[in-house]
């Protein structure tokens, strides 16, 4: 909470002390009347560099000085090892490492997808899944009875089958060009599947790759905020009032939601 002196300053329209956080100054929080709340003051923890190994990608810069950094979040909640390896290889082709920076593998996208499938999203928990089921028009959206977990089970297996059939190799062992051929065959429905839509599965895989690259690192992807750094996205910032009218592009070091944990 803002202390009384700060509130008094604001009431009197004095210029607040320079040392105060800019966002607090600009909110002009709480000026009498009915106070309706607000997230103000003392939210930002200073980043604690010694503990950043909690949830990051595999980048070397992040290793703790003493011994190997262990990211306990990088284990599987839903996928089998085989499913994980296919997902990791496929998402890396959708979003490959290049001169710009890390790709899906380094960002931890396959872990992200695994963790998402393990929870509500994988079970379509907040979606209408009651019958009767009918094939509808495209305009009516997904009408299947399968949940995302089941669609991934089938989709990944079919990718493996297609790779084995066409190249006599597992998907993860294909060359990048061959992997692209498989992915394209799914994207364009060249692969004929009876249980799920190949292109529908591809879309979900691509969408969750974007999520895994750019969601807050708390979900297991976007390792080290590497996705955000690619786009110069500053993440979780409290205020842009200082630059909102500014013409020059502003590069801001990103901040994740971890910095908003309450003080104990």
């Amino acid at each position: 909470m803002a202390n009384e002196t700060e509130e008094q300053d604001l009431k009197d329209h004095k210029e607040p002390d320079q040392s105060r956080r800019n966002f607090l100054k600009n909110t002009g929080y709480a000026v009498g009347g009915l106070v309706v709340g607000g997230v103000v003051g003392s939210l930002l923890r200073s980043p604690n560099k010694s503990t950043t190994n909690n949830n990051t990608g595999n980048t070397t810069e992040n290793k703790a000085p003493a011994g190997e950094a262990v990211n306990f979040n990088q284990a599987l909640m839903y996928f089998t090892q085989e499913q994980f390896l296919i997902t990791e290889a496929a998402t890396e082709r959708l979003f490959p490492a290049d001169d710009n920076g890390p790709g899906a593998k380094e960002l931890g996208v396959a872990y992200f997808i695994d963790h998402q499938l393990a929870g509500e999203w994988g079970l379509n928990g907040r979606e209408y899944m009651q019958g009767p089921f009918f094939k509808g028009e495209t305009t009516q959206g997904y009408q299947g009875r399968l949940k995302r977990r089941e669609i991934f089970d089938i989709g990944l297996q079919e990718m493996q089958n297609y790779s084995n059939k066409k190249f006599q190799k597992k998907f993860k062992d294909l060359t990048p060009e061959e992997q692209d051929t498989v992915l394209k065959a799914f994207e364009t429905d060249e692969v004929k599947l009876t249980t799920i839509s190949a292109s529908g599965f591809f879309k979900t895989l691509f969408g969750s790759t974007m999520e895994g690259a750019y969601a807050d690192p708390l979900y297991g992807g976007n390792g080290n905020m590497g996705g955000w750094k690619l786009k110069n996205f500053p993440g979780n910032q409290m205020s842009y009032t200082k630059i909102i009218e500014q013409d020059k592009f502003e590069k801001i070091t990103p901040v994740s939601l971890r910095e908003h944990l309450p003080h104990s």
Partner: peptide, 14 residues
């Protein structure tokens, strides 16, 4: 502060 006496803070363009 609106006519009902409810005070609110300014937008931070977040």
């Amino acid at each position: 502060t609106n006519p009902d006496g409810v005070a609110r803070a300014a937008c931070q363009y977040c």
